[in-house]
Amino acid sequence: MGRMHADEHAIDTTLVRRLVRGQFPRWADLPVTPLASGGTVNAVYHLGDDLTVRLPLTSGGASDITKERRALGALGELPVAVPDVVAVGEPAEDYPWPWAVHGWLDGTPAREGRDAPARDLAEFVRALRAHPADGPPTRRGKPLADVDTATRRAIEELRGTDEPFDAEAALAAWTEAFDAPPWTGPPCRLHGDLMPGNLLLRDGRLSGVLDWATAGVGDPAIDLIPAWNLLTADTRPAFRDAVGDDDATWARGRGRALSMAVIQLPYYRHTNPVISANARYVLTELGVLTRSR
């Protein structure tokens, strides 16, 4: 992993130990181990056997600590485990933002193109949507118009790279999704970031879902993105059948997957191999990248 953001704060094991020791002395003697992660917002460390420490990398991610705590506190029963927020730390030790300690969830992060429980994913999405959802759409629950400019700009940026990318096909796919009928139903409860690394598997089943900072309400299409960032052409139909969405919602979900991938790839292609590989996978599944790299 390279430095991903120009304003990224330097975080290492020594800093995490100092923060924990200073604010939560009951955990001062627990081992601190960095976790390999494709995450772009937080540095994550394993604390002892049962805890994780999450520290925002930039000021833009600092507000996510409060958002995630609120989102997790509002959840009712789900068919999979979600993290418990065990504690929230304060700025200290030259670290300028709040940080969080979560309960550890066992499981292996999902990987794109591997066997994945399509029907378990659909069950989770349906169960989350069944939760009460009030208020205006949150950022990832808004119409595709909200990301139209950024998506088109990213397509043009990718056109100028050495990626085997078909910009005209991408524009056509984006236009098709953009022109799909908008969501007119009541707001749905959303996770908003169902990337493979946020989906934990045990014994071939979906066992947990991480990273709730983008959770909110709005258009349910955003939570269809695992159809393209995780599943294959063979397993995608089972997910679509089980989740039960209409053609327009499916089209908007495909547009969301495309938008995220074309924005991620030029930004992370030299600094985050996990995210850039996943973006290439999405674009290959959508037929706008001619081969994986």
Rank of each mutant, 00 (worst) to 15 (best):
T184I: 03
L210G: 10
E123S: 05
P132M: 04
R189Q: 01
N42E: 05
V209Y: 04
H9V: 13
A233R: 12
V262P: 13
T284M: 10
V41Y: 10
A110C: 00
R21D: 14
P226T: 10
E163G: 03
L55C: 10
D241R: 13
A130K: 00
H270N: 07
N272H: 11
E285I: 02
Y268C: 01
T66Q: 11
W174I: 04
D166G: 10
A122M: 06
E168K: 00
D134M: 05
L55F: 10
P117R: 03
R139D: 11
R17Q: 11
N272E: 05
Y45P: 01
M195D: 03
D146I: 02
S259C: 15
P143I: 07
T184V: 04
R293C: 06
R291E: 13
V85K: 12
E168Y: 00
P25C: 03
G103Y: 02
T40V: 15
V44L: 11
P226D: 10
A248H: 14
L283N: 11
G60V: 08
T13G: 14
I225F: 07
G107F: 02
A36E: 14
A227M: 04
A227L: 01
P31N: 04
M195P: 00
N272V: 05
G204T: 12
A145P: 03
L30S: 07
R236H: 07
V16S: 09
R256I: 12
L199R: 04
R140M: 07
M195R: 06
I155Q: 14
G61I: 01
E77R: 12
P164S: 13
L128D: 06
A238S: 08
W228R: 01
P226F: 10
V209L: 03
W212H: 09
F24N: 03
K67I: 06
A227F: 03
P181T: 01
G22K: 10
P181N: 02
D29H: 14
D223F: 06
V86C: 12
R269F: 09
H102G: 00
I65V: 15
G107N: 02
R153G: 13
